[in-house]
Amino acid sequence: MSTWIPESASNLAASVDNITLFVTIVSVFFFVLISAVLVAFSIKYRRKSEDQETAYITHNPVIETIWTIIPTILLMVIFAWGWIAFKELRNPPAEAIEVNVVAKQWLWEFEYFTGKKSLNELFVQQNKPVRLIMRSDDVIHSFFVPQFRVKQDILPGSYQQLWFTPTKVGTFDLLCAEYCGSGHSKMLATVKVLSPEAFARWEKGDELEDGAALAAISVSPAERGKDLYSQRGCLACHSIDGKEVIGPTFKNLYGKTEDLEDGSSVLVDENYLRESIYEPEAKMVKGYPPTMPSFKGILSEEEVTALIEYIKTLK
């Protein structure tokens, strides 16, 4: 990773980087110029005596015209260049593969044209253009992958699109860039760019390539639950160290008796936890906002079991 701009991992990065470089050269030039002149004048014309002679210069049309025209030309070049690169960002090729994206407080859901779904992990194939069709279930979110140089706000009530062709195999951070509430900074996901072979295997459902799935068959349910806790966005709202974030903390949750909004109370056991994951608003604990989305169809029964096992370990 270079120090000033992240590595480029999409077809769009190069043109964005080129214009960025141009703007940077222009900016550095003018910054150095102005600073140097300022410092030079400050030294040369510093007040040495009270009656130092000064020149009576009020204006100079030639100089003023020149330094109005030069920035104007440069700015127009930057505008035009930025626009050209922007057009590329905005216009996906026809052959792009579509992926549906749902952003909600505070997780990402991806649905592929094969019907496969994934949560907080976007799988794409190297060198194959992808078109994301994105909607939000609640407030404005923004899809941002720094290495791809793409960003698009996702609005509730309409579809937004974004496209890119990943050029490098690897895992890249996907960040929510539009402030969306208390879980905003935890609304992170990853984009997994797979080689064509790996992608084909993944599509077939043979997920052995996938570290998480691999772990699923070889680790205890509680450990699997721990991974799910961070991958599936639970951590945005539920702490494991007793802090109150948005929802109740998981620490010492199992076996506790919670007071509900309707005045009754409930013992937190396996069934209550399962119900709360699938139907969060069925039994609301007193004093918490009804913001949790349902994980029905997102987390399998097996995964819910793993999560419950994990919660049980948090004492």
Partner: peptide, 8 residues
């Protein structure tokens, strides 16, 4: 009214 409709 110039927002690009996303064809779905």
């Amino acid at each position: 009214f110039t927002r690009v409709p996303v064809i779905k």
